[in-house]
Design a protein around this nucleic acid. Structure first.
Lengths: 203, 203
DNA sequence: CGGAGTGCCTTA
DNA sequence: TAAGGCACTCCG
């Protein structure tokens, strides 16, 4: 156990929720003994991918002026201090709203929309296929869980999505992949391989 | 050509030789227009390595109290102003004297001295092998020239080293590496390799 | 962590 | 009030 503290990282009641304060002691050089203070937004360790909401890199690792209290010390909020990994990150619902009305385009104009397969059913207070696709694509990229869609009661979700919508799952009704679905997909792959083989033979 | 002078750096007759005065005008902020004065010791650009004479880093860029003349202005010595890169740095002779009597040691005491190879002959008003080795080692580390030793007349150097000693070369007589020297060294390397090979084979 | 550059307290 | 002195910020 160290007596001298070289790094100290903690939540802090005077900061917006989810932000942490880190104090780092300079150990060498002409300025040894000085303390640099950094503020981090609490980012989960599995957040290597995040939903496509713009984030500005410069909010990390910035020097910040310290305004001290009269006791010359910023008090740490013990009530909120973390004891382990139990911190639960607030999940944002309906983030897809931020992207509504936006479309991908290139020099030739808007890039055509994609339509949903029949067995993907939108669910929730959203109507457009584009939003549903964004939701599903993000879940497939980001989630470390299996993607099942919303498995709760459809009526309950529609009446009170803030409570009953599962934020870990995309805005689609529960999807069941049957053995027949798997067989059809395998069939499709086999046909595609055959056509490729024929094309190579003809060349 | 600028009318307003933002930086001015010059030699100054009231300062010790080699020191320069710089005046920097504050350009922004509440104190814009204020002038900060810095004093620098003129350090050569090639002085990334210097002989092992202790130098204190804190002599650079320190605030210094300015004692002004009665005219409230420190006069600039125009005679000594530099016109280009022609400044010649004074070379220190006999700096090895400062290290005489010092020896390296560790917890077990003094670390054994090294003896000179036969073909390295000390030269100059110095006797100890330790001083000669310091001189040679420093030259090998610091110099960007080839190390030849003192190539001038031995008698002239001994009688008037302040004039005839070449400060760019270590305090050893001129060394000639013959083809025979090269052959012997190659022989030595070959034998060492053979012994290594045998040791590996025996293992 | 260093360094340029400003803020601001102290001194006369 | 101005200049000196030095703490401090902020950027690389």
């Amino acid at each position: 156990m160290n007596i001298s503290i070289e790094k100290k990282r903690s939540d802090c009641s005077v900061l917006p929720k989810g932000w942490q304060r880190e104090e780092v002691l300079r150990k060498t050089g002409l300025t040894a003994g000085k303390v640099d203070v950094y503020y981090y937004r609490g980012v989960r360790s599995d957040a290597s991918l995040v939903p496509p909401i713009r984030q500005t890199a410069s909010i990390f690792k910035q020097p910040v002026t310290v305004y001290k209290t009269q006791e010359s010390k910023v008090k740490t909020d013990q009530k909120h201090e973390r004891t382990g990994d139990k911190q639960e990150k607030p999940k944002q619902l309906f983030w897809e709203k931020r992207l509504e009305g936006l479309t991908a385009c290139d020099a030739n104009g808007v890039i055509g929309t994609t339509s949903l397969p029949k067995y993907i059913k939108p669910l929730g207070p959203y109507t457009s296929d584009a939003t549903t696709i964004q939701s599903l694509a993000t879940a497939l990229h980001v989630s470390s869980q299996q993607i099942t869609g919303q498995t709760g009661s459809k009526q309950a979700i529609m009446e009170n999505p803030g409570v009953f919508l599962n934020p870990e799952q995309p805005l689609i009704a529960a999807v069941t992949i049957t053995k027949e679905d798997v067989r059809r997909q395998e069939e499709r792959v086999k046909r595609a391989r055959l056509r490729l083989q024929e094309a190579l033979a003809a060349a």
